[in-house]
Amino acid sequence: MNQFSGEDVDRLRIALARIARLVDRQVSGEGMTRTQLSVLGTIARLGPLGISELADIEGLNPTMLSRVLGKLEASGLVVRSAAVADRRAVRVQTTPAGRSLQQRLRRQRSQLLADRLTGLPEGQAGQLLAALPALETLAEQLNRPQPVKSQPVKAAR
Results as ranks from 00 to 15, higher is better:
Gln146Tyr: 03
Val68Cys: 02
Val27Thr: 04
Arg144Ser: 12
Val148Gln: 15
Ala156Pro: 10
Gln124Lys: 14
Arg107Phe: 15
Ala55Asn: 14
Glu30Gln: 13
Leu117Ser: 11
Ile14Tyr: 05
Val79Asn: 06
Pro145Val: 00
Gly50Val: 14
Gly70Asn: 10
Thr35His: 00
Met32His: 06
Glu122Asn: 13
Leu113Asp: 07
Ala131Ile: 00
Ala139Leu: 13
Thr33Cys: 04
Leu69Gln: 09
Asn143Asp: 15
Gln36Asp: 10
Val84Asp: 14
Ala125Cys: 01
Ala89Leu: 08
Ala131Ser: 10
Val9Ile: 07
Ala74His: 13
Glu140Ala: 14
Gly6His: 01
Val79Ile: 11
Ala139Thr: 14
Glu58His: 14
Arg144His: 15
Arg80His: 07
Ala97Arg: 10
Arg13Ser: 15
Arg87Cys: 04
Glu58Phe: 06
Leu65Lys: 04
Gln141Val: 11
Arg107Val: 09
Leu49Trp: 10
Arg67Gln: 15
Gly76Thr: 00
Val153Cys: 06
Val92Ala: 02
Leu112Glu: 08
Leu129His: 11
Met32Ala: 04
Leu46His: 15
Leu49Pro: 11
Ser150Pro: 08
Leu16Phe: 03
Gln108Asp: 14
Arg144Phe: 11
Ala125Glu: 04
Ser110Thr: 12
Gly126Gln: 13
Gln141Gly: 12
Gly29Trp: 13
Leu105Ser: 03
Asn143Lys: 14
Ala139Val: 10
Ala97Gly: 10
Gly70Gln: 04
Leu72Thr: 00
Arg106Lys: 05
Thr35Leu: 00
Met1Ala: 08
Thr33Lys: 07
Val84Arg: 12
Ala130His: 06
Asn143Tyr: 13
Thr42Leu: 00
Gly59Thr: 03
Ala44Ile: 09
Leu72Trp: 00
Glu30Phe: 03
Glu53Gln: 13
Gln127Phe: 04
Val92Tyr: 08
Gln111His: 13
Arg91Leu: 14
Ala97Tyr: 01
Ile57Val: 15
Val148Trp: 12
Leu117Trp: 15
Leu69Ser: 08
Ile19Arg: 08
Pro145Tyr: 00
Glu30Thr: 03
Gly47Ser: 09
Gln111Leu: 14
Leu60Ala: 11
Pro152His: 06
Leu117Gln: 12
Leu12Ala: 03
Arg157Gln: 10
Ser110Leu: 14
Val79Lys: 04
Arg13His: 13
Ala89Trp: 05
Glu58Lys: 15
Val84Tyr: 14
Gly31Lys: 11
Thr95Tyr: 01
Ser5Gln: 06
Asn2Arg: 02
Glu140Gly: 12
Leu46Phe: 14
Gln151Ser: 12
Arg45Gly: 01
Val27Phe: 07
Ile57Met: 13
Ser5Thr: 11
Val27Ile: 04
Leu135Cys: 01
Ser38Phe: 03
Ser38Asn: 06
Leu22Thr: 09
Gln102Pro: 02
Gln102Asp: 11
Leu135Ile: 01
Arg106Val: 02
Leu22Ile: 01
